[in-house]
Simulated scan of single mutants.
Amino acid sequence: MIFTILDILGLIAFAISGTLAGIEKKLDFFGVFVIAMVTSIGGGTLRDLLIGNTPVFWLLNLQTFYIVTATTILSVVFRHRLSFLRTSLFLFDTIGIGIFTIIGIEQGLMIELSPIVCILLGTVTACFGGVARDILCNEIPVIFRKEIYATACLTGGFMFFALDFLKVNNDIIYVATAGTIILIRIFAVRNKWSFPQIEIK
């Protein structure tokens, strides 16, 4: 049950993130919808292709389409209530990567992949939708900039398996994993934590 709820919350968070990115780029509604859809399903699509799970998840269940469509419309209608566009975009993107990391890890566990591969699969699920969004919006993807992004997902993944090893309840594992990712991302941006950039001198 909580896994289904997490999936829906992740879709909503990434749909809002994509919608706000499209609005910021002054796209028309169709453009905004495409960005929202790509942000929501991009990571999961790549994940399913990597593990041979075809047709990919959103082709088999129209619920994904309905959730993203409804979220996009509501986000556009109430866009003025999201007064700080950059802050809102960051917040919902961060929530999305926290939730989708868990979903990717669980998908890997279902087909009995090793913990390291599951963590990488979770990171791909969390990050690739944002990569596709940024590319379509003509931005350098956040994951390739100096901000802490994928590293937060990887850390959350290790937290997942550490708690699983300790036989902690699954619901607590999910909350702790997502919380770890979200907090790392928030603190990293607030305190300007980053990896050094490579420069040619």
Score class of each variant (00 low, 15 high):
163 L>N: 02
194 S>Y: 13
171 D>S: 14
171 D>Y: 13
165 F>G: 03
122 G>M: 01
47 R>V: 06
189 V>Y: 07
91 L>T: 13
127 C>T: 14
193 W>K: 11
21 A>G: 09
113 L>A: 05
1 M>K: 09
80 H>F: 11
47 R>M: 08
201 K>W: 10
30 F>Y: 14
109 L>S: 12
26 K>F: 01
112 E>I: 06
31 G>N: 09
190 R>V: 05
52 G>A: 10
152 A>C: 05
28 D>Y: 08
100 F>A: 02
5 I>Q: 10
82 L>C: 09
39 T>R: 04
41 I>M: 13
64 T>V: 12
201 K>R: 12
185 R>T: 07
167 K>L: 12
52 G>D: 11
200 I>N: 14
128 F>M: 14
72 T>F: 11
164 D>E: 14
128 F>R: 02
2 I>Y: 15
81 R>A: 12
118 C>T: 01
95 I>V: 14
28 D>H: 10
136 L>F: 14
62 L>P: 04
166 L>A: 13
167 K>R: 14
189 V>C: 01
121 L>Y: 01
179 G>E: 10
191 N>V: 04
120 L>Q: 01
100 F>I: 02
173 I>Q: 04
173 I>G: 03
34 V>P: 02
85 L>Q: 13
85 L>W: 04
196 P>V: 04
171 D>M: 10
166 L>F: 13
189 V>N: 04
74 L>Q: 06
109 L>A: 10
57 F>H: 08
24 E>R: 12
1 M>S: 11
35 I>V: 15
98 G>P: 00
95 I>Q: 03
58 W>A: 10
125 T>R: 01
170 N>E: 09
190 R>Q: 13
152 A>Y: 00
185 R>Y: 10
92 F>A: 03
106 E>F: 09
184 I>R: 04
91 L>R: 05
105 I>A: 04
77 V>D: 06
198 I>C: 03
197 Q>A: 12
59 L>M: 15
122 G>Q: 01
11 L>P: 00
